[in-house]
Simulated assay, not measured.
Amino acid sequence: MTNKVLLTFANAAMNKAYVPYSRFQVGAAIETSSGEIYSGCNVENAAYPEGTCAEAGAIAAMVLGGDTQIKHIYVMGKGENLVTPCGGCRQKIREFSSLDTQIHICDENGVRKTLTMEELLPFSFGPENLSPEN
């Protein structure tokens, strides 16, 4: 899949975000190992901790679509600073990634920084850390 296609999906998702409280839109687009694309946007709630992140929405769509392996994830937000996944989303991405999965941090102009899963969440805990008995 091309970078431009995934940026388009992330941008479309970002522009659909439901953010009446923070007004901070985030979109995410996932390309899976099978070549499918899934996207998600952040959704806020008046009970603040009950909102969901764009990455979590895209992962839920991916699982619903029958995929479980992230090849690339594009996370898009506006502003001067990089809009990276929060700690919880880093762990969610890790669940469905290899250590060399690429996380692309973007704004509307394109990719600003690319990190591997290992760089984004070093010394992470993943499915392979659990014993087969669990």
Rank of each mutant, 00 (worst) to 15 (best):
T52C: 07
C106I: 07
E95Q: 15
D67C: 02
I73C: 00
K78W: 09
A54N: 12
Y21A: 11
G51A: 07
E31S: 11
S22K: 04
D107L: 04
I30G: 06
Y21V: 11
A58F: 08
V83A: 12
G88P: 08
A47C: 12
T32F: 02
K92A: 15
E95K: 15
P85E: 01
I59T: 05
A46P: 15
K78V: 12
Y18I: 14
G110S: 05
Y21M: 10
L115T: 03
L115K: 01
S97T: 01
C86P: 02
T114E: 02
Q102D: 14
R90G: 06
M62R: 03
F96K: 02
K113S: 14
I30A: 00
M62T: 00
M117W: 05
I93D: 02
T101E: 00
I70T: 07
I103H: 05
Q25D: 10
G79E: 10
L82G: 05
C41G: 04
G79N: 09
Q69D: 12
R112P: 12
P49Y: 15
A46V: 09
C89H: 05
K92V: 08
T68I: 10
G79A: 07
E55V: 07
E31R: 12
V43S: 13
N42H: 04
A58M: 04
A29I: 01
V83H: 12
I93A: 07
Q102P: 08
K71W: 09
M62P: 01
G77L: 00
E44V: 09
S97W: 07
G110H: 07
S97P: 07
I70G: 03
G35P: 05
E108L: 13
T68R: 12
L99V: 13
C86F: 01
V43F: 08
T116I: 03
N45D: 13
T114N: 01
R94Q: 13
E36D: 12
A46K: 08
M62E: 00
Q25N: 14
R23H: 15
M62V: 01
P49H: 14
G40F: 01
K78N: 15
I70K: 03
A28S: 02
T52L: 08
L99M: 12
T68H: 12
C86I: 01
